[in-house]
Design a protein around this nucleic acid. Structure first.
Length: 457
DNA sequence: ATATTTTTATG
DNA sequence: ATAAAAATA
């Protein structure tokens, strides 16, 4: 009787799961294992919204495995120690895991390899799980990774993507080893009221609906804030309840301009993964420094707190920041404009903004979050590092009738149309609203400060 | 063949 | 300004 361990990490699904497939093909029994990793839970990376979503994912994964005759084992502690314990409890000869790109994931792989191989257990690290195209699979002639999106997109698009694997019909799990109970999401405190539901079943439901009703309108609708026409699949990609390989095939088979635009966005995710894989330090350090001396001190802290609370006095910024707090999710256009506002207009260190996003985002992901923040801060791969987004222009362009602002900023709910984007221009007692803050900074002052700091004058 | 320079394009 | 590809030495 041969046994293999499948260590689940950011791949909490049964469909299109290469490690699971490989383990089932080569062993009589498998041990599907998830470790609530003390290393992550103590690192500050764990956040209530993601822990709650994770509970959904684990319960659903367990249910899916039980339908197939198996079950999920959940343990808590150091991931390497727990895998070792399972291996000795079951006599497993192989451990399968998905390849990761973060410094943490790579260190985990290294430590697992060391710990297992000295005991004669083989570790198999699988590509094509977290990203469709493995980081490093395509590179430019003179570097180990692409630093510009467009040439990466061309090469990435030309790669053959393997067919998606079906979910297994049956899974045999040895009776012996015990599991902790998976807590319900209700056991997590500090969770956003409007947090989405996790789990593979929910992910597949959303994928089907998206393919039927959302994809076709994606190209023209994806930047419209109030239209909310993005896929909202990002949490499922982050937790791996959906496979990027399957998503790409499903989108391409639907066809059309919407599908093309959507696949392009999936490629941005893979672009950032291949940058981080090549430059793991970019999760904390400037990818390409502009020698910024970001603002600090009490004055800056006050602005940061206004930004976090959605009380900057710039309605579209505040609307997006309040959506983040309420849903644990923010529209992509909102992410760009709020990040641009913090880094360029308030001239605050991108790490402070990135951390706030990680504290709340259900899809908070090291590669996407940190590198998109760097992109907006001008310290990343943006070819125009000094671009500044004007929040009033952004508001009028991407929320032309103001309904996104009215949805999230009740103080302005009575203001009609695009006038909601410039509340300081409103006159008369009907428009006197002392509960909505004055702008924390004049845009011209912010711009001047930024230009001076970057030596642009 | 490989290094260097020029050209092209960049959310 | 700078990355990537193309052209050239």
């Amino acid at each position: 009787m041969t046994v293999a361990v499948v260590l689940f990490t950011s791949d909490l699904r049964l469909h299109d799961h290469p490690p699971l497939r490989a383990a089932l093909a080569s062993s009589d029994e498998i041990v599907p294992l998830f470790v609530r990793d003390s290393g992550i839970e103590e690192s500050g990376f764990a956040a209530p919204n993601r822990l709650a979503f994770l509970s959904d994912c684990l319960r659903d994964l367990d249910a899916g495995l039980r339908e197939r005759g198996g079950r999920l084992l959940v343990r808590s502690g150091d991931v390497v120690g727990e895998v070792g314990r399972i291996v000795s409890e079951t006599g497993a000869a192989d451990v399968h895991v998905a390849a990761g790109v973060s410094a943490y994931a790579r260190r985990r792989e290294e430590r697992l390899r060391e710990a297992l191989e000295s005991g004669g257990t083989r570790l198999h690290v699988h590509d094509g799980v977290v990203t469709a195209v493995a980081p490093g699979a395509v590179t430019p002639a003179a570097s180990d990774h692409f630093a510009v999106f467009t040439p990466y997109f061309r090469r990435w698009s030309a790669q053959r993507v393997r067919d998606a694997f079906a979910a297994p019909r049956t899974v045999r799990v040895p009776d012996g080893p015990g599991s902790e109970k998976v807590p319900a999401r209700g056991a997590v405190s500090g969770v956003s009221e409007g947090l989405a539901e996790g789990g593979e079943r929910q992910a597949r439901k959303q994928l089907t609906a998206w393919r039927r009703h959302g994809l076709a309108g994606y190209e023209e609708g994806h930047d419209d804030l109030s239209g909310d026409a993005t896929s909202r699949l990002s949490p499922h990609l982050h937790f791996g309840t959906l496979s990027p390989v399957e998503l790409i095939h499903r989108a391409r088979s639907a066809g059309g301009a919407g599908a093309e635009a959507f696949v392009r966005q999936l490629c941005w995710r893979e672009f950032h993964h291949q940058v981080l894989a090549a430059r793991p330090a970019a999760s904390r350090q400037d990818y390409r420094t502009r020698h910024d001396h970001w603002r600090s001190g009490a004055d800056a802290s006050k602005d940061v707190e206004a930004w976090r609370q959605g009380r900057t006095g710039y309605p579209v910024v505040d609307a997006a920041m309040r959506q983040l707090r309420h849903e644990g999710w923010m529209h992509n256009r909102g992410r760009l404009l709020t990040a641009g506002f913090l880094t360029k207009t308030l001239y605050v260190d991108w790490r402070i903004g990135a951390q706030h996003f990680l504290d709340l985002l259900v899809d908070g992901d090291v590669a996407n979050n940190q590198l998109n923040w760097q992109w907006m801060a001008g310290t990343g791969t943006d070819s125009r590092p000094n671009r500044v987004l004007n929040p009033v222009v952004q508001g009028k362009r991407y929320d032309p009738d103001g309904s996104y602002v009215r949805r999230w900023v009740p103080e302005l709910a009575a203001v009609s149309g695009a006038a909601v984007h410039e509340p300081w221009k409103l006159r008369g007692p009907a428009h006197d609203r002392p509960d909505y803050p004055q702008p924390v900074v004049e845009l011209a002052d912010g711009l001047a400060r930024f230009r001076k700091a970057r030596g642009l004058d």
